[in-house]
Amino acid sequence: MSTDPDTSGLLRSILPPKRLDRLFDLCGAHGWKLIGAGAVVGALPPVFGLREGYMMTVLSEMFLFAILALSWDIVGGQTGYPSFGNMAFFGIGGYATAILVKDAAVSFPIAMVGAVVAVLVFAAINGLIVLRLRGHYFAIATLGILLAIQQVTRNLDITGGASGKILFDVPPGIVFYYFFLAVLVVEMAVVYYLTQTRFGFILNAIRDDEGKATAMGFNTTYYKTAAWMLAALFTGLAGGAYGLFNTFLDPQTAYNGAWNVELIAMALMGGTGTVAGPVIGAFGLHTIIEYVESSFVGWQLVLLGVAIIVTVIRFPKGVVGTLRAYANEMDYYERGGMAATDDEEVTTDE
């Protein structure tokens, strides 16, 4: 799955692997500063007058999708359990907030707390069912739960049935802009920190070989559930705010199956199992989809399908993963891999 020889030749002269490797090391060493800088840059546009309108909405949605993609990646990329039903957390969070705000007349912040509680309870039950499954079964079970919840929501009165809920008197757009930005920055910080801890190592170990992790004394169910709840927390927060941001919620938008695929595609294109990958993927893909949506109405999902196929077949490691592999291509040899006592063929299971 390498890049074409001619483009990689050009790339090699502009950005040799060694230099890129140093760049990655630099980013790794200054992760906190990068996240901080990102937060500042993200906070700037409204300061310079962008307070409403189309661009404001697009940027807010980019943060929103970055939250969703990064949350998916905690379980899908870091832990190796690719869920096709993360939007269930989103929808539950959205409906819980909408019901609390509209029917129980509580304020937005309190409703968000209620939504988080609802999502975590749901995630705990859901996790109990699906985290015992692996591979195909896990993926389909998560999708099944998403669709079941969607159907139930469609048929209940409290959720407004198929016509959904319209929300009035919502806070102005700038509140959601900063809300999504803040949640994203906090989530990036949390994920970045966790990847350096024992907890993060254990998640990666479960991804690589769950049986071995168990044999080493890790109760994997416990860690999988923790990762699942963390993903649910951030997805639920995003969902809770989304209903008010959008002023409207129905089963089709709240449990949007296409979005679920979209956020997986974002994580995959950016690079799964990394902090920056899903965020980069979300910004990139959302920009493209937004452009196609406004220029070629109705074709954005065709593009999404094609983009997924091409990514999976050509760049399954995503932007960050591909670049990292390129940066590290020689290090095995340079760091004495071949000088070791063993002379067998190097396994190249890239």
Binding site: F84, V302, I309
Partner: peptide, 24 residues
């Protein structure tokens, strides 16, 4: 023969593309 997740995703991609082309 690659990751199971990639096989699921590629068929999902095909599904979306065919479905959306059919709508068009």
């Amino acid at each position: 023969g690659t990751d199971i997740f990639l096989t699921l995703l590629v068929t999902f991609g095909i599904s979306i593309a065919i479905q959306q082309l059919a709508i068009q």
